[in-house]
Each structure stands twice: as structure tokens, then as C-alpha cells.
């Protein structure tokens, strides 16, 4: 960790079978007396061992709900979950809460934006890490303690032995996130879902955490689902990128193609609206007009139509269907750079 290095995503071509296969996932929140709200409206994607798949989109597009549904962490009432999420041959959405609890923390782990919410505030960091090892690797606490210190050191926590007896509130945000990654490392999950793991952190700390995640994927072959609103993070980390809008995936591609030849007007709009550190200065940004409040229902239109510079008549009359497969794809009647 302390070695200054240039960190590339160095993932091989993914010929292997998907480890997680999400198909037509739908999550509807039923607010009493109101129209049911489709937070996730038919999302499908695959993740293979050693692959990093990004879910990117603006606030409210359904990123977190997607991951919570897969992890069985949505509130038990007030929503319906449809579709399937097959992990290693087994549909996670059909498991009992007890079975799911057993998978979580062992085979599947999740890290959140706010690490404090996933750490127990009244248990020392060392105990929390060793607990995972005791539970999943059958070690005694005595055996696990030195391993825990080793792990904390690996994730770049200074003076790890002293940190073992600290409580979460005594660590900074970056330390806590690293402690959580240490716990994820301790159970060697096959699938890791990271929901905005660096959004609350400074860029220099973010760079450390992202480097750590890359290492984890390369070294252990963990499959990583990376949820973020930051296209820069996606560009450096993800093999495959899914752009979400209004609860659906609107474009998918490998990161090189998606960033060099984006096709969906929303993807293009996003890329044109962010200032780049390395771009020539002085050029005005091109914002996407309006806001998500203007969205149309997907049932009979393209949700993005009111904000879309390419919109045609058909866009407000019909739903653009997904054209593509589990590697590339697009949902648009009039994509960029085609019939214009």
C-alpha cells in the first residue's frame, strides 16, 4: 500500500461463467394511497469472477436499491421485489432471511458510503475483524488477533496493533473505510458490492481505497460491483460500465468503448457536463437541461425524453427497448452518431 505505484485495471478477458446474474430486477415501493413507485424498473447484468462492473448514474436512479435488493437488505415491508439474482446457481431473491444472512459476510460482502453505519459502535475494531475470521475461518480469537493486525496493516492503517483496541468513532472516515475493507478481506468474499465507498472521502484517501480495491480484485479474483456517481472513478476501475437512468440501464459497454464512443444521449450529456482536470480551460460546460423531476414514465415513453437533445416524436410515445446483450447494449431510439 505504501508503494507509490501506477494502478491500472489489469483484468483479463472474461470468458468465465457469471458469478452473479441479475435478471429483470424490479423494486416497487408502494406508498399507501399513492401510485406505486418503481425505483428499479427491470435491471439485468452479469458479474464474473475477477471482474469489476460499475453501476453509474445520478442520485435517485436506483443504484442503492439495486444493491440492497440483491443483498436482501431492503426493508421487509412496503416494497415488492421481482426478477432474479442468481449467485453461483442459487437465486438470492428466493432465499430465506436466515440463508441470506449466512451468505452475507462470507461469500458476499457489501461496503457502504458511510462506514460508520456498518461498524458496531461499541465493539473495538480488532474484535470486529477477528469475529469475521472466527465465524468464517474457524480460528480462535487468539489465532485471529495477529492476523487482524496484519490485515489492518495491509489496508494502510498506521500503527495497526494500537488500532485494534480503538472504537470506530476514534478512527477517521478513511480509516473506517479501510477497516471495513480489512473485514471484507478477512472473509475473502467471492462477490463484493461497494456502494459509493469513497464518496465521503477526500481524493487522496479515495485514491488509496480505490488502489486497495483493485488489488483485492486482482489478487483474490473477487467479483466487484462498484456503485458510484463519479465517472472518473468508473473510468479507472471498472471493466464494464452500466449507465442507469430512472431505474433502468440505458447504456452498457466496456469502459474503453463507453468513454471513447458513448452512444446514449444521457451518457454523452453526463460526460459533457463535468469539468475535466486535464482539459483545456475556458470552454463552457454543456449542462443537461432540466432535472430528473421532469422524467416521463418508462411504460409509454423514454424517461429521458424531456431533457434529451435527440428526442424524436416516438420517444414520448413508446418505450425504447434494450438492444444488446450482457456485454454491450443501448436503450434509445436515436443514439448519438448514427442517423443524425
Amino acid at each position: 500500500m505504501s508503494t507509490p505505484m501506477s494502478t491500472h485495471a489489469v483484468h483479463p478477458v472474461h470468458s468465465s461463467e457469471p458469478l452473479l446474474s441479475v435478471r429483470d430486477l424490479r423494486v416497487t415501493f408502494g406508498r399507501r394511497g399513492e401510485q406505486p413507485f418503481k425505483a428499479v424498473d427491470g435491471i439485468s447484468f452479469d458479474v464474473r469472477p475477477g471482474q469489476t462492473v460499475g453501476l453509474v448514474g445520478e442520485s435517485g436512479c436506483g443504484k442503492s436499491v439495486t444493491s440492497l435488493a440483491i443483498m436482501g437488505l431492503l426493508p421487509t415491508r412496503g416494497n415488492t421485489v421481482e426478477g432474479s439474482a442468481v449467485f453461483d446457481g442459487e437465486d438470492l431473491l428466493r432465499l430465506s432471511p436466515g440463508q441470506m444472512r449466512d451468505r452475507r459476510g462470507r461469500e458476499i460482502a457489501m461496503i457502504f458510503q458511510d462506514p460508520l453505519s456498518s461498524l458496531n459502535p461499541v465493539v473495538q475494531i480488532g474484535r470486529q475483524v477477528t469475529e469475521v475470521m472466527e465465524r468464517h475461518q474457524g480460528l480462535s480469537r487468539k489465532e485471529a488477533m495477529p492476523k487482524a493486525a496484519e490485515l489492518l496493516e495491509r489496508v494502510g492503517i498506521p500503527d495497526p496493533k494500537a488500532r485494534l483496541v480503538n472504537y470506530p468513532h476514534q478512527l477517521s472516515g478513511g480509516m473506517r473505510q479501510r477497516a471495513l475493507i480489512a473485514m471484507a478481506l478477512a472473509c475473502k468474499p467471492r462477490l463484493l458490492i461497494a456502494d459509493e465507498p469513497t464518496t465521503a472521502l477526500d481524493v487522496t484517501i479515495q485514491a488509496q481505497i480505490l488502489a486497495l480495491l483493485k488489488e483485492l480484485v486482482v489478487e483474490t479474483g473477487t467479483a466487484l460491483v462498484m456503485i458510484t456517481h463519479d465517472l472518473g472513478v468508473v473510468a479507472g476501475l471498472c471493466d464494464e460500465v452500466n449507465v442507469l437512468y430512472g431505474g433502468r440501464i440505458v447504456e452498457r459497454g466496456d469502459r474503453h468503448t463507453l468513454f471513447s464512443r458513448p452512444r446514449h444521449p444521457y451518457t454523452v450529456g453526463l460526460l459533457n457536463s463535468i469539468p475535466r482536470l486535464d482539459a483545456p480551460r475556458g470552454e463552457a460546460l454543456s449542462p443537461i437541461p432540466g432535472s430528473v423531476a421532469d422524467n416521463l414514465p418508462w411504460d409509454s415513453a423514454c424517461a429521458f425524453a424531456p431533457r434529451c437533445p435527440n428526442a424524436l416524436d416516438v420517444c414520448v410515445q413508446q418505450t425504447p427497448e434494450w438492444e444488446g446483450d450482457d456485454v454491450v447494449g443501448l436503450r434509445c431510439f436515436n443514439p448519438m452518431g448514427v442517423s443524425r
Binding site: 479515495q206 480505490l210 479507472g236 469502459r255 468513454f259 460526460l271 475535466r276 482536470l277
Partner: peptide, 10 residues
């Protein structure tokens, strides 16, 4: 440390 939305640069 600032991520750049361009895989080639990254």
C-alpha cells in the same frame, strides 16, 4: 489523485 473520466488517461 483526482479521477479523470477517460480510461486512457487513468
Amino acid at each position: 489523485a483526482v479521477p479523470v473520466p477517460d480510461p486512457e488517461v487513468e
